[in-house]
Amino acid sequence: MDINQLDTPSLLLDLQTMEANLKRIDTFAKSQGIAWRPHIKTHKSIEIAKRQIAAGACGITVAKVAEAEVMAKAGIADILIAYPLASRTKLERVAALLRNARIILAVDSAEQASHVDSFFRERGQVIDVWIKLDSGLRRCGVDPGEPTLELAKQVSRMPNLQLKGLFTHAGHSYAASSSEQIEQIARHEGTCIVESAQLCERHGIPIEVRSVGSTPTYELAGKVPGITEVRPGNAVFFDAIQVGLGVAAYDQCALRLISTVVSKREGERLVLDTGSKSLALDQGAHGNATVKGFGYVVGHPEIVIQRLSEEHGVAAIEGETSLGLLDRVQIIPNHACTVMNLFDRVHVVRDGEVIDIWRIDARGHVQ
């Protein structure tokens, strides 16, 4: 099927571009002698997760237990849940997953770790945990250095927790205003993990895994000596935010929406059949201000999507445009992760032809 036979709005995934993005991650990891564990919250797809493993990933990262359940059921056997869990309901679901997969849990406080330890002690099970550090995002995580060491000591005394690693996510890199600022954030991201791990080891606590994430920083933080793993998520697709940050070019963005012009006021505006329910209202995570409008209209820089209602994308015409009623455009989303979660399926494209349709298996799995 030619993509122009698709009804709109439809979600498109350029397979060759995605494969090139996967090769970029794997080539970088191999060049540094480290592992990569992509975050699947970007795509929520079993097919893509399996392709990441086939391309060289050591396992996957998820945000939610529900995502882990989908991936473990599909045969993914090494999963980090990079989210601090403490409730009994969620830990019971994790315990069930241990029959089929290695699950790693995140801890960022002694109180939360004690909940996890008590739960697994009741079951006579031991679970691997990594301590999450706050490298500047000011979200979850313990501070680097002495606070990390103190938590590591406490976790090491909990018999049903096996401390295996330290990790962090420098998501504040999305708010960077220059490449120099991204480099500074990445350097701190890597060094705070390595130095905290070294501090723990000087006190007799071995730290096997030293993991960093964030698509804008992984190729920089991953070069810090002592880092053993990177966890980029968005890098499987890239998007307009990553282009704005200088991390990728538009032709490296694998995920796009195809949309139709449904209304036009000459010289002023046109309306596309994609609104907030397909493009999302995201204009940048954590303060990012590098995007213009609500997505980049490929080949038409004169079209700026200024407003979204639920089913309408209202775009300003800045100058002259050849677009008219029923013309189709492709849109690179600002944030691929949120857009992917709005669709049930994605049309896989090669050279303008739809060659497959993949389910977005963990779409809406937020618990």
Rank of each mutant, 00 (worst) to 15 (best):
I3Q: 01
I3S: 00
Q5H: 13
Q5T: 14
L11Y: 10
L11C: 10
L12Y: 03
L13Q: 08
L15A: 12
Q16M: 13
T17Y: 02
N21E: 13
R24E: 15
D26T: 12
R37D: 08
I40R: 01
K44G: 03
K44S: 02
K44Y: 03
K44M: 09
I46T: 05
I53P: 03
C58M: 08
I60Q: 07
T61K: 13
V62R: 06
V62W: 04
K64P: 00
V70C: 15
A77I: 00
D78F: 00
P84E: 12
T89R: 13
R102N: 09
R102I: 05
I103P: 00
A106R: 00
S109V: 01
A110K: 15
A113F: 14
H115Q: 12
V116S: 09
V116A: 10
S118E: 15
S118V: 12
S118P: 00
G124M: 01
D128I: 06
V129M: 11
I131H: 06
L137P: 00
R138Q: 05
V142W: 05
D143A: 15
D143M: 14
D143Q: 15
G145C: 07
P147I: 08
T148L: 07
L149A: 07
S156T: 09
P159I: 09
N160R: 11
L161Y: 05
L163A: 12
G165P: 08
T168H: 13
H169A: 08
A170M: 11
G171H: 06
H172I: 02
H172W: 05
Y174I: 11
Q184W: 11
A186G: 02
H188R: 15
E189R: 05
G190I: 00
I193Q: 09
C200K: 01
C200M: 05
R202H: 10
H203Q: 15
I205F: 07
P206D: 04
V212S: 04
G213L: 02
T215I: 09
T217F: 03
Y218T: 00
E219N: 15
K223S: 00
I227T: 01
E229P: 09
V230Q: 04
R231D: 00
G233W: 07
N234L: 13
A235K: 01
L245E: 04
L245R: 03
Q252T: 13
Q252H: 14
S259W: 01
V261E: 02
G267M: 08
E268R: 07
S278V: 09
G284Q: 12
A285G: 04
G287K: 12
G287S: 02
N288V: 12
T290I: 10
V291E: 02
G293L: 03
Y296P: 03
V297H: 04
I303E: 03
I305Y: 00
Q306M: 08
E311S: 14
E311K: 08
G313H: 01
V314F: 09
E320V: 11
L323Y: 03
Q330M: 14
H335W: 01
C337S: 14
V346Q: 02
V346K: 01
D351C: 08
W358I: 03
W358Y: 10
I360A: 07
D361N: 09
A362R: 02
G364H: 08
H365I: 04
V366Y: 09
